[in-house]
Amino acid sequence: MEVHGTPTGDQLAGAEVLYVWDHRFADLAAVLRRADRLRWVHAASVGVNRLICPELAERGITLTNSRGVFDVSIAEWVLAATLSFIKGFPRTLALQREHTWQYRTTGRLAGKRAAVVGTGSIGRAIADRLSRLDVQVTLVGRTAGADQTFGAVRGSDDLLSVATDVDMLVAAVPLTAATTGLIDAEVLAALGPAGFVVNIGRGPTVVESELIEALQTGTVAGAALDVFEVEPLPADSPLWSMPNVLVSPHMSGDYVGFEVDMMGVFVDNLRRWLRGDQLHNIVDPDFGYVRG
Rank of each mutant, 00 (worst) to 15 (best):
A80W: 12
G107E: 00
W240A: 07
V247D: 00
G257N: 04
F150D: 06
G218L: 04
L109I: 03
P54E: 07
G155Q: 09
E210K: 09
R50K: 14
R129Y: 00
F25G: 07
A127W: 04
V207G: 02
G218F: 03
T119C: 13
A194V: 01
Y103N: 05
G60N: 04
A189G: 14
H280G: 11
D22T: 13
A178K: 06
V72C: 02
D27Y: 09
W77V: 06
L211Q: 10
F287S: 10
R129H: 05
R271V: 10
V170E: 03
L211V: 10
V20C: 08
A15V: 15
G151A: 12
V46A: 04
T179S: 15
S209V: 07
A223Q: 03
V267N: 11
S66R: 11
R142D: 02
V260G: 07
V41D: 00
A172K: 04
R97P: 01
P54F: 06
S241E: 06
P243R: 10
V173C: 03
L191E: 05
G141W: 06
L133I: 14
E208C: 10
D36W: 11
V170D: 01
I183T: 05
D10H: 11
V260K: 15
A185C: 05
A185D: 03
A178E: 03
S248F: 10
L239G: 04
P7G: 13
R275E: 03
A26W: 03
R97E: 02
V247Y: 00
P204S: 06
T6H: 08
L63M: 11
R33S: 13
R34S: 13
L12I: 14
D147W: 12
T149R: 15
D236P: 09
I200P: 00
H42F: 05
E229L: 11
E231L: 11
G292Q: 15
Q96T: 08
L169I: 06
L159P: 01
G60Q: 04
D286L: 13
S66W: 02
L274V: 06
R154I: 12
D226M: 11
S161A: 15
